[in-house]
Amino acid sequence: MAGDLPSRAGIGLRTAHLRQIAAAPPSAGFLEIHAENYMGDSPAVALLERIRRDNELSVHGVGLSLGSAEGLDQRHLRRLKAVADRFQPFLLSEHLSWSIVGGTYLNDLLPLPYTEEALALVARNITQAQETLGRRLLIENPSRYLRFAASVIPEEEFLTELVRRTGCGLLCDLNNLFVSCHNTAGDPLRWLDDIPAEAVDEFHVAGHAVNEADGRTMLIDDHGSHVHAAVWRLLAEAVARIGRRPVLVEWDTDVPELAVLLAEAAQADAVLARSQGHRHVA
């Protein structure tokens, strides 16, 4: 499944770097775009077509809202399909979260209670999305700042069950995992032990911010700085358990110069290279 993927580090393609990257392909294994930025007909879309000729591309959706109780926004699903069809990414991913209710888009990856009801609903939405897209989706674990009283299923089990029911893959975001476990008293290593390694097709890493609230620290997944040492260590742990996979470095707030992003990607490549890879026994 993950056999012919470039198990290398890639970088998020940000608008500030579009022209530079169009002029000369960067030394990154692949580029990842946010699908919602390329659903219109702007000059950025034309630039991306040029960039695509020289670079591997993955498409990351941020607005499909797979956890919407009211079902999927069909128009948005079709627009996502158009982006995927146009740019032929080697990976297509979305989130285990919701952002649309009553026709309103709330522009955040909002948390789901991990219940049987939510599991059935998300599985149904993923199945429908995959049928329309004609592709397998990777589902990313979100950063969480709270837990619901109603949650009865551990997140790793919830994701495992989604894989079983829908055939989807997983995008394992190690920064999100670190942030969520800090904020909601979870155990990241157990989480990594418990997800199905063969379903994981991509890793994400990014920086996070440390906020104070009521005298305690809350980690915020702001993608606004270097990847923290603890998250690099978690990536190494993940590679050891799961195997080598493409690693994306995300940096979205206070976007630095391209060279800084590429140096971060080189560091991810070094983690992949050091790893013995795949200790996981099925």
Binding site: L110, Y145, L146, A150, A185, D214
Partner: peptide, 22 residues
């Protein structure tokens, strides 16, 4: 508040992270 576990930090403070971002 009833739907969200406080977990050592008020439900309000946790919800505020989402409200800030939106």
């Amino acid at each position: 508040s009833n739907a969200v576990l406080a977990d050592g930090l008020s439900a309000q403070a946790r919800l505020q992270v989402y409200r800030n971002h939106v």
